[in-house]
Design a protein around this nucleic acid. Structure first.
Lengths: 214, 214
DNA sequence: GCCATTCTCATCCATTTGGGTGATGAAATA
DNA sequence: TATTTCATCACCCAAATGGATGAGAATGGC
């Protein structure tokens, strides 16, 4: 390893902080450049210490780890934030991820895996426990009851017209777009409304979007 | 371990299939109950063999692993599908995930980790390599340029009206909903249009949704 | 007190939209 | 071949919508 990975630790629990400090200092290839019980001085510490990886607890007094993460990313985008916490609820996981966290580990993860995860996140990976990963995947899967999704039996032409509606076009515009008369457009739209069981442009557009018929 | 994990393998490459077969048969706690070069007989094999975990290659002749996955989940929802493939592009990853895969490993993953992943997915985790995980997280993060988002300076009342518009309501309905006259509704909506720079209900609704002002 | 904003309501007018009805020719299907 | 579906267009009418303009009451800030 050429140069050590520069690590910053934010953890309010003193025992845990000191334990992690010991672990990190004892590990070759890693360099702990700071360990703090809160994020109140982020704005000084991040630009000053230039960490490669920040280990972030979630539940801290003052600014939580979730709130601090986007600040870190804003101050120094190349810094990787690794959440290290006891919380496993989807809300916090997603908030952390949306805020720019690159990894999400539970504190009960064995030390060797935490070390591995630090290297991992520094290499551009996103380490996470598989239970966290399951929740993330679940998010993608829980989607629509696509299977039961009625296709509403729209004709090809009706589908095109519906797409134009979803673009926010007026009847006249749609007519021009498709080189047909406005009455033909109206005719198609009437059929679309009937099939979708709606009776206005807005409702049709909303339904089309919500059930992604478009 | 009380009872062995029942595993089905779908992999068209003969060498890989035989290699995996050897690995799985040599591992205590696992029971390979079938290994097939294609998914043409899924409909018989899944209900007949009742696998706990299916190892699924993506690129197979006939029905691909991505297409086969939802079929597996439909035939036997409790079966966990673990993608095992060489492809690492976001498209395929997301297709697989959306189709119900519970894990996603690259074939170059070391055998011991594959074994661990099988146990993992069977326990309800979602093993994935951290590079895959990074891509998944990236999907959440790439979102909107929230920062640049103008708030359009809508008044509280206008925002409420806009929300009603997004519900697909007509002027009359909105008037009733808020106990105001229809002309007042029209007045608010005109102001909304002006601020959002649109000139129809549909456009306003689309803009509100797209920029999630609602 | 004065000013800006917001919320309210109104009137007038033109355009758009929704709904009813019907018709024609082409294409696909039974 | 007969029937059905699709795409096209038309005419009528009523309701909804969009745009211009104005105006009174309430609120909050300066």
């Amino acid at each position: 390893m050429e140069t050590k990975i520069r690590i910053l630790l934010y953890e309010d629990n003193r025992d845990l902080r000191e334990g992690m400090t010991f672990l990190l200092q004892a590990t070759p290839g890693l360099q702990l450049i700071g360990a703090f019980p809160d994020t109140s001085n982020l704005e000084m510490q991040i630009p000053g210490l230039k960490p490669d990886v920040v280990l972030m607890d979630i539940d801290m007094p003052g600014r939580t780890g979730i709130e601090a993460t986007p600040v870190v990313k804003a101050l120094r985008p190349e810094t990787q934030v690794l959440m290290l916490t006891v919380f496993e609820d989807e809300d916090r996981i997603f908030q952390a991820i949306r805020n720019g966290a690159s990894g999400y580990l539970l504190k009960r993860t064995p030390p060797t895996e935490i070390i591995a995860a630090i290297h991992d996140v520094h290499r551009g990976g996103s380490p996470m426990t598989s239970s966290i990963a399951r929740r993330v995947l679940h998010f993608f899967q829980q989607e629509q009851p696509v299977a039961k999704m009625k296709d509403y039996d729209l004709s090809p032409r009706e589908l095109e017209i519906l797409k134009s509606l979803v673009k926010g076009y007026s009847y006249k515009l749609i007519a021009d777009e498709h080189f047909i008369s406005i009455d033909t457009v109206r005719s198609h739209i009437r059929h679309i409304y009937e099939k979708l069981q709606v009776n206005s442009k807005t409702e049709a557009v909303l339904k089309a979007l919500k059930e992604r018929i478009v």
